[in-house]
Design a protein around this nucleic acid. Structure first.
Length: 718
DNA sequence: GGAAGGCGAATTTTT
DNA sequence: TTCGCCTTCC
């Protein structure tokens, strides 16, 4: 239907797609694509967009593509610009929050927000809740700030305003009141939290027929990534945006739904089928990532779940090696096993970056880090604090926020006395009272004067001076001036560990430069929104060749040559807390499924008999997920060689090789007397195991017999 | 204003 | 065990 030149381009686009992928890309109208791990999901999504545009079915301006993370949105844009000779800037491709923000900025009047409204991240929101509870004299033992925050967010994510929430007991009624007060406070201060962005955008479209119809007519094609992660409200928002003539194309994998705890509703997938009158999802089951042994294991594990749309992954790649399973004595030994294997892989020519160590909970990283560090292996831990979340950065941003929006009490309070300028609790109380009295913001109250506090007067002068100085300056210079004049640099100069913070503050200017260049704007409010919506990559050696450490959640969407899944113990993975949640076990199993499918070629599963948890040893049974993998796919391993400590303890130079008979010699004769640091003097009663697993039994008077891992017992003869 | 020490809690987390 | 938060003290 389009120009002839276009048709060959269309052929090129579709070439190389498998039949399922092609069906998805060229699906007429709406579709739900059930895209298994490694099945080319992103490729399908971007190719569909390119196909729609190339065949003239939609103009770039007529489509909206939404993802969950900025990273995914960026990747989509990058791939798109490779497929299409168009300028992707100005296209509606972004995260739910980013697109809602855009909508609300464009229609801030209709949405009832100031043009320069500020976005609260989770930290800011918690601070706002605390402040509210304090102002209302709420007992924070009974109404914990975090609980109140979670209550507000859960309701917003369900699409409910305070007035819509049903409460049947006094406690809940109070929570609802607090929700209402919180919203009123945000409204007064011209700020919106993350959930508010979505809810407000939803309300905007729901209430304003003209706007709704405008966007419904405009967006002929709406595409959604990771649809299994959408919340109820997000799905409702999508449905509002979708006009009678438009098509909704959703891609997701119910087996990879691992965010129910933060509002994701897998049920949206089934609902979408019903709502759009679709007979069935298009299934992408051919996997291009992993060897078949790995996929067989993943399929076997996930088959234990009952609530699934159902699919099995397959590949034309070979079976590859068996999955390796290692039972460690404790978490330290588990970590050393990982190190040994990593070193062997390295000797075999792998890069460190080919290896990922996954765990269920962040606390588990410590032992692994320790072992890697001791071995001198470079590693990178994902999931630390991010750039825009650092305290010094938030301080600088608070100055900027106050410049953009003087109503922002949260920002005011954050920096009115930071760096310290002698504005104490007294002064602030008086100021708060004055503000309340006059129905104005703290900033206005401060400006109204009458303060005897020199520090406060100085602060007002500082901010007004900044405002004048910054007027008309480009964004980066504005940031630079604020960082320099705020006194933050000076403050951190005197603090130990202050250099890093100063460096970060300098880096903020660079972030502003980069932002201005990328988004082609000098708008301060836009930069602040960017800082809130995209907290920034974890900096530090992101590009260096290093073993990757992260939670299973953080690993979703990534892939590695070799993956270690550690801590496979009942109570940890599956996590005990999950077992009491509805469908908690199934979500844990999906998590296991995600973990397994990260591996391309080699997969290790490890568990420890004993693990230090909260300073206490915990004895865990092997995870049920281990048993859910067919035994034929698994090979059980022993440690290659004992650690140096064991060699010393056993006095064995050759070491006890798991593969051959061990020359085991023990340091203390049975019946000899030894001293233990905690239990005192005892008698050696026996040994068990060998090499790194060797344990010693010592009999103590009164206490009785104890087993120790020889390597750690630190016994001395006496 | 800031350090020091006591207390309690300790999956997962993006926006 | 470790971390963050809170109170207390200088």
């Amino acid at each position: 239907m389009q120009a002839h030149s276009a048709s060959s381009h269309v052929q090129d686009l579709l070439a190389g797609l498998n039949p399922e992928q092609k069906a998805a890309v060229t699906a007429p109208g709406s579709a739900l694509v059930l895209a298994g791990a490694g099945s080319g999901k992103t490729r399908v999504l971007t190719t569909r967009i390119a196909w729609l545009v190339s065949t003239g079915q939609v103009s770039p301006m007529g489509l909206l593509a939404v993802t969950f993370t900025n990273k995914a949105a960026r990747e989509m844009l990058t791939r798109l610009s490779a497929l299409l000779p168009i300028n992707t800037r100005g296209m509606w491709v972004g995260t739910f929050h980013g697109l809602c923000n855009r909508l609300l900025r464009t229609h801030h009047r209709e949405a009832g927000l100031p043009q320069l409204f500020q976005i609260l991240d989770g930290q800011d929101q918690l601070a706002a809740v605390k402040r509210l509870l304090k102002a209302l004299n709420v007992d924070t033992e009974r109404y914990e700030p975090r609980r109140v925050q979670a209550f507000i967010n859960a309701n917003k994510e369900a699409g409910l305003r305070a007035a819509d929430v049903e409460a049947h007991d006094p406690f809940s009624r109070r929570l609802v009141e607090l929700y209402a007060e919180y919203d009123a406070q945000c409204q007064r201060e011209g700020v919106a939290d993350f959930a508010e962005l979505l809810l407000r955008a939803h309300e905007l479209l729901a209430r304003n027929a003209l706007l709704r119809e405008h966007y419904q007519t405009r967006f002929r094609h709406i595409l959604v990534d990771e649809f299994q992660d959408t919340s109820r409200l997000q799905y409702r928002w999508l449905k509002l945006l979708k006009g009678p003539e438009s098509a909704l194309f959703a891609v997701g994998d119910d087996d990879q739904s691992i965010y129910a705890f933060r509002g994701a509703n897998v049920g949206n997938m089934g609902e979408l089928l019903r709502d759009l009158g679709l007979a069935a999802p298009i299934k992408l089951t051919r996997n291009y990532r992993s060897l078949s042994t790995i996929l067989d294991a993943a399929n076997a594990v996930i088959a234990h779940n009952r609530n699934r749309l159902g699919k099995d992954l397959w590949t034309e790649a070979g079976a590859g090696e068996p999955i390796r399973h290692y039972e460690a004595l404790d978490d330290g030994e588990e970590a050393r096993f990982v190190v040994e294997e990593a070193q062997q892989l390295r000797r075999d020519g792998r890069d460190w970056g080919d290896l990922a160590v996954l765990y269920r909970a962040n606390a588990q990283s410590r032992a692994i880090e320790h072992a890697l560090f001791s071995a001198g292996i470079p590693y990178r831990v994902h999931g630390g604090q991010r750039f825009f979340e650092r305290a010094e950065i938030k301080h600088a941003l608070a100055y900027l926020r106050l410049l953009a929006n003087p109503e922002d009490d949260g920002a005011f309070l954050r920096v009115v006395n930071f760096p310290a300028r002698g504005v104490g609790a007294r002064t602030l109380e008086a100021l708060d009272a004055a503000a309340r009295q006059g129905g104005m913001s703290l900033w206005q109250a401060a400006c109204a004067g009458g303060t005897k506090n020199k520090g406060l007067a100085g602060f007002v002068q500082l901010i007004e001076g900044l405002r004048a100085e910054v007027a008309g300056l480009p964004l980066a210079e504005t940031v630079e001036v604020v960082v320099d004049r705020s006194g933050l640099i000076g403050h951190y100069t005197h603090e130990r560990d202050g250099e890093d913070r100063i460096e970060n503050l300098r880096e903020l200017t660079n972030a502003a430069i980069a932002f201005a260049a990328e988004s082609d704007t000098q708008d301060l409010a836009a930069f602040l929104a960017h800082a809130a919506l995209e907290a920034g990559e974890h900096e530090a050696e992101a590009h260096q060749d290093a073993v990757q450490l992260m939670t299973v959640h953080a690993a979703k969407g990534l892939e590695f040559h070799t993956v270690f899944i550690t801590g496979l113990e009942e109570g940890l993975f599956p996590h005990e807390n999950a077992l009491t949640e509805t469908d908690g076990l199934e979500e844990e199993r999906r998590l296991m499924y995600v973990a397994i499918t990260r591996a391309r070629k080699r997969l290790y599963l490890t568990h420890a008999q004993v693990r230090m948890l909260h300073g206490q040893p915990r004895y865990g049974l092997p995870s049920r997920f281990l048993e859910e993998i067919p035994a034929g796919l698994i090979q059980s391993l022993r440690m290659h060689k004992p650690s140096a400590a064991t060699m010393r303890a056993t006095g064995s130079g050759s070491g006890a090789r798991a593969t051959g008979p061990a020359a085991v010699r023990f340091p203390f004769a049975i019946g000899s007397r030894v001293v233990h640091a905690r239990y005192g003097e005892g008698v050696v009663a026996g040994y068990q195991g060998q090499g790194a697993e060797a344990e010693i039994r010592v009999s103590f008077p009164r206490i009785g017999d104890k087993w120790f891992i020889l390597e750690y017992a630190h016994l001395t003869a006496c």
